[in-house]
Amino acid sequence: MEDMMYELLFFLEVLFSGLLTGTLYSLVALGFVLIFKASGVFNFAQGAMMLFAALSLVGFQEMLGVHWTIAFVLTVALMVVVAWCIEKFVLGKLVNQEGIILFMATIGITFFLDGFGQTIWGSDIKTLDIGLPTGSIDLGGIFVDRLELVAGLTAAALVVSLAIFFNKTKIGRALRAVADDHQAAMSVGISLRTIWIIVWSVAGVVGLVAGIMWGSKLGVQFSLTLLALKALPVLMLGGFTSIPGAIIGGLIIGAGEKLAEIYIGPFVGGAIENWFAYMLAMAFLLVRPQGLFGEKIIERV
């Protein structure tokens, strides 16, 4: 009895920690979804944007010796510049190209940002400390990492504010319109270019928030981009256009891979976290090719 109780608590602890890690994946996936919805671009560079933003935040803090809030504002400004450059030098030149070409262009952006970020800010592992809580707290017998808890709450807050942004503001509504119909967006009086820049900026800020969370947890380092790749299976699960999909997909992937690592890992030599998410997503798609929330596509000729 005692044992079972302990087992159950342990299971819940793993599950909870997985869910919270999952929200971090969701944060990255959210950036993808925003861009895909508005511009149809599959942005492979979301992870690179996250790393670049986090590096810049720490860089500004160190270089200027300013409080993190100021560094945050500077980084947001920088991400807007990045978005502008991407629109100006990459996407703007590739209008009307097939999705696959745009996708590969974002792989190019990924490499550029990775190289550029490390060129200006250096490549050693940096600690990111903006005073987020550490250690764990006891929630009725389950120990939960405080940082993960904060990350989860932040993700939730971000989703709520994005939902408000999209539903209540003029720009937000225009952004939603552009996803459905470019003409409609034009009629709101905002040019497509502006919309793209806004969306990429918002995705950059989402990347920054994700970068702060991951960076606080693991230090700001290059390997964050590998973690960010995990947002891809999240997207496969949740569908490329669904914000709730990104959240729920993240939770499933996060919890699934933690549980698998603990309960299956030992039997197969461990470290299955490296691939489990991808396999899970692939297996799922075989059953439901449109993902959890995507609509079934009937092709036409």
């Binding site: 030098f89 990459v90 590969m104 262009a105 792989i107 190019g108 952006i109 990924t110 490499f111 550029f112 940002l113 990775d114 190289g115 550029f116 490390q118 060129t119 490549s123």
Partner: peptide, 12 residues
């Protein structure tokens, strides 16, 4: 790092 950047730019 330069290599990364140059690859990225070339691809684009």
């Amino acid at each position: 790092h330069l290599e990364f950047m140059i690859f990225g730019v070339l691809i684009i």
